[in-house]
């Protein structure tokens, strides 16, 4: 039984330039205990897709979908109250910048208590003990004193650990981590990822890990979904996608990793993908990636490729999809 089932999800943002689709008709599912990595450049709709799941979309945006269900509960037609009950309890989330994601005016203890109360049915006593337990669980020493600290007194890594403690307080079924390490030092990044990995194994919770670093997902995710301009480019098992990428965009993302760069001694410049992610108000025709693609041909400019099964994965690229007219 899938934990999460998303079919044809579209997120629209109303702007002065008109209605833009930040997430364009994507479908995916997640089974219990599975880690799904979502990768793509900034502005590809990764975060938007996850906010849509939690009903956390910013103002002036709306979602459409054929199906959106969590544990067989229909989220599309659920009331705000039902969705709120799910949030922060069965589905929790951690964010990109831990320093600004904690409220500066309240102590860590106060903020942690709110999450603990969600799990323990507003039981007022004993939260302190549970809070200390949680802080120790995420590797914070002197947990006692930390409860009375304010966020600005702590480091970024420490704040992210506290966000994680809040996210696991309710033993959620699904944890969404939206670029959890982007704002942190490289040394801290590894620690946070290790912590997330061990907690995921320990609780057996499913996780959606959003990142623009495809290398990071290689160690963490069971499956990888590559997004570009709000659409899915390629999706499949991590080893298939990372070791044998087929979509030119996935290949370009992998080639842009500095790790891969250091192996090739002759390069003088860090490799990058030329061009920019398209402005959603002026989407290119045909395949969204074609203006930056090295392997584009005529058809790419005219026709939007469909997401199709190919070689143990789903891929949206004309290279692997011979035109149906030629087949007949």
């Amino acid at each position: 039984m899938p934990l999460l089932e998303v079919k044809n999800l579209t997120v629209r943002i109303e702007t002065l330039k008109g209605s833009l689709s930040a997430v364009d008709n994507i479908s995916f599912s997640l089974t219990e205990g599975e880690v799904l990595g979502i990768v793509g450049e900034s502005g590809c709709g990764k975060s938007m897709a996850s906010y849509a799941l939690l009903d956390l979309l910013p103002p002036f945006s709306s979602l459409e979908a054929q199906q959106l269900s969590f544990l067989n509960r229909d989220l599309l037609h659920a009331s705000h109250r039902e969705k709120r009950n799910l949030r922060g309890k069965d589905i929790t989330m951690i964010f990109q910048d831990p320093m600004t994601s904690l409220n500066p005016s309240f102590t860590i203890g106060f903020q942690l208590r709110e999450s603990i109360m969600r799990a323990e049915h507003n039981k007022k006593k004993g939260w302190r003990k549970r809070a200390i337990e949680l802080l120790k669980h995420v590797g914070i020493s002197e947990a006692h004193e930390r409860l009375d600290s304010y966020p600005h007194e702590l480091s970024g890594g420490m704040c992210q650990r506290i966000m994680i403690a809040m996210a696991i307080a309710t033993r959620p079924q699904l944890l969404i981590a939206d670029e959890p390490t982007t704002a942190l030092d490289v040394t801290i990044q590894a620690q946070i990822l290790k912590l997330l990995q061990s907690l995921q194994k320990e609780f057996g919770m499913a996780m959606i890990l959003i990142s623009h670093n495809i290398g990071l997902l290689a160690h963490m995710a069971n499956r990888v979904m590559v997004m570009y301009a709000g659409q899915i480019m390629e999706m499949g098992k991590t080893e298939d996608i990372i070791l044998r990428p087929e979509h030119p965009y996935t290949q370009a993302l992998l080639a842009a990793l500095p790790e891969n760069y250091s192996n090739t001694k002759h390069r003088t410049e860090l490799p990058s993908i030329p061009g920019l992610v398209p402005d959603l108000a002026h989407r290119p025709t045909g395949c969204q990636f074609h203006p930056r693609c090295k392997e584009k041909f005529d058809r790419c400019e005219k026709e939007l490729p469909e997401l199709k099964e190919h070689n143990k994965r789903k891929i949206a690229c004309h290279l692997y999809d011979p035109p149906s007219t030629k087949l007949t």
């Binding site: 939690l54 009950n85 005016s105 709110e114």
Partner: peptide, 26 residues
């Protein structure tokens, strides 16, 4: 517009609490 308001919503707090406590204090 602050990130911590989004966090408060993500924690599943009621609108009342998010606005009346988390936002108002700041």
């Amino acid at each position: 517009k602050e990130d911590y308001i989004r966090t408060a919503h993500a924690k599943g707090l009621t609108n009342m609490r998010v606005i009346g406590i988390h936002a108002l204090r700041n």
